[in-house]
Design a protein around this nucleic acid. Sequence first.
DNA 1: CATATCATGTAAGTGGTTACATGATTGT
DNA 2: ACAATCATGTAACCACTTACATGATATG
Lengths: 179, 179
Amino acid sequence: MDVATLCLAVLAHGPASGYEIKKELEDGAYSHFFRASFGSIYPALARLAQEGFVTGREQEQAKRPDKKVYRLTPAGKRELSRRLQAPIGPDYIRSEFLLVLFHAELLPARHRRALIEERIRQLQACIAEMTGGGEAACNRYEGSGPAFVHGYGLAIYKAELDYLDSQRRFFDLPGANAA
Amino acid sequence: MDVATLCLAVLAHGPASGYEIKKELEDGAYSHFFRASFGSIYPALARLAQEGFVTGREQEQAKRPDKKVYRLTPAGKRELSRRLQAPIGPDYIRSEFLLVLFHAELLPARHRRALIEERIRQLQACIAEMTGGGEAACNRYEGSGPAFVHGYGLAIYKAELDYLDSQRRFFDLPGANAA
DNA sequence: CATATCATGTAAGTGGTTACATGATTGT
DNA sequence: ACAATCATGTAACCACTTACATGATATG
């Protein structure tokens, strides 16, 4: 599943410009399980428009640069549905955090401690943002799918935090013979 | 952190050939948080040897192709330590599973159910393999680092399974108007 | 008899990212 | 004044994957 499919997916929730799609992928619900940069989003949208899966309408704005608002065509919606039903690949995970801690014995104890404390802070912030009602990004989405995925992510983050909390003793293991 | 660093990391646990490193990344403990293919491992090892971070010794084998066993040099160990202490990037996650389920409403109910049941099966298998004592791959590693990471992964997988179990009602939501 | 495992390596292709180019507007 | 936000797009680059080339041995 490439960036084009991702764009179709985001657009299924309503029309948006390339810039808005990027923001969604950066701060919104999608950020927890996908990623893409401008350099891949803009060409993907242009291609999708050419293929007839989206239409892009130039929209002037007062005191802002013009933006090109894309929306799904009926063909685009069918295409998205088709792509979502294709066999899925396995989750791709690449965690430098876990790679480094796998070799905790090669690190100075304080460095190990700093890594874990930073991780705890990040997880707490993330959980707070996802739990706290209000203007949180994910609130924009309605329906069982987004709610299910939201709960899924939250369950994982909570489990990570709980685990780190239960492993506080790991912080204070004898220091390493560092470089 | 690139494949070269990953190779240094694997070699820190003992000498290995390119083929063995790949196996480790595919079935071993590393498989849960990193990935690499032959096409990137072999050139990385050649480069590391050229830089003096590893030495490769050709080893003949009876009834098997020769293999080139690499081992970390003292400089290589220092280099690994140095690289592990560099600032780490955020976890990179790309889950087609979550992307598809985020759009559950666009899918036929049976497809949604099949995805989740498959996921449950995978998680159960994974947890069983990690929990069950015996010849499991991760048992090769000793020390607090590997144990910590093992526990971390297990905590996540268990949380995912628990969540899916708690959401069984999600399976039977009204079907979608599929393509 | 076919397929899987063991074993190394290269070349072509790909799906992205980073950096660049451009520029008004708003907040600090 | 300086940085951030809004906004689009291109070009150069990069790390990695897939497929190819080669071939013996073991397994079902």
